[in-house]
Design a protein around this nucleic acid. Structure first.
Lengths: 154, 154
DNA sequence: TATTGTTATACTCTATAACTATA
DNA sequence: TATAGTTATAGAGTATAACAATA
């Protein structure tokens, strides 16, 4: 009758992954917001700086897809970043429909300052975990987030 | 000049936690949705079943706070669950403003069936991780999700 | 008056559709 | 005609404010 505990009234061995991961993600985002606000950056703007620092992009559509954003919502973000001199945004000479996107030196500086502040906080949080769990957590997290959404769902 | 790699152009050692956790959460939720849909349950309805199975609640406000939902959005969910006979929802005789909430036997059955299906999928995902990382991941996740949002942010 | 539940409303984020310009 | 970018619009999810019943 109780060979499989999940069939009985007893609580399951662990909460669902989503029930732990989603609230954790919300809390991590909430912890980032003050840092971003201090640099007057929206969350998506920060995502843009990170992506363009890793690699310049050939078009806004490519950038949108790379960071999982909608291309229409990116426009205001890019307007702001370009106006503040954090990114370059110029028509591709070989196809003037597309916009070549890259980070300026100032954009790189801001990106680095923000990420340092964010990861400093994160390290204080991770320091509360036992060393072995901490390493396993980070490795598993990087492995899982490298899988495509399709693989995670299958 | 390059004693601290974060000050230079080189990429940082790891992505920000939120940048890994939030998309992972989204993917996990997306993986749950087909299971929930098969049982004709909304995500919040499932959260209600889980919470009430753990412990009956003295009021809708208490339930809302316990699962991190807005009390106004819970109402339609509770209407549906009560109508389908998955929960009991009766005025507290000692304070008829409040509604006593608890799971019916059928509600418990549904909760167990859904969670089994969900965790079955999750186990297949976790099986892709090395055993040590998997254990560290789950332990760290449970530890972090037990911290309050305030602690995570501080 | 304070609290529980409810309804109505507004706001944010996101996705869809229509328009301009280049090709 | 097809594509990149832009603008305008609509939808989902969420939070806020006002209301009715009970204490």
């Amino acid at each position: 009758m109780s060979e499989n505990p999940a069939d009985d009234a007893a609580p399951v061995a662990r909460p669902d992954l989503a029930a732990m991961v989603v609230p954790l993600g919300r809390a991590l985002v909430a912890a980032e917001l003050p840092v971003l606000r201090a640099h007057d950056l929206a969350m998506w703007a920060y995502a843009v700086l990170l992506r363009l620092d890793a690699e310049p992009m050939r078009s806004q559509a490519a950038l949108a897809q790379a960071i999982g954003a909608d291309k229409t919502r990116l426009i205001g973000i890019l307007d702001d970043l370009a106006q503040r001199g954090l990114i370059r945004r110029e028509p591709d000479p070989s196809d003037r429909r597309a916009r070549l996107l890259s980070l300026t030196a100032e954009g790189h500086r801001v990106r680095t300052a923000v990420q340092s502040a964010i990861q400093e906080r994160e390290e204080r949080l991770l320091a509360r975990l036992p060393e072995a769990d901490r390493r396993g957590f980070l490795r598993a997290l990087q492995a899982l987030s490298a899988l495509s959404a399709a693989e995670l769902g299958g």
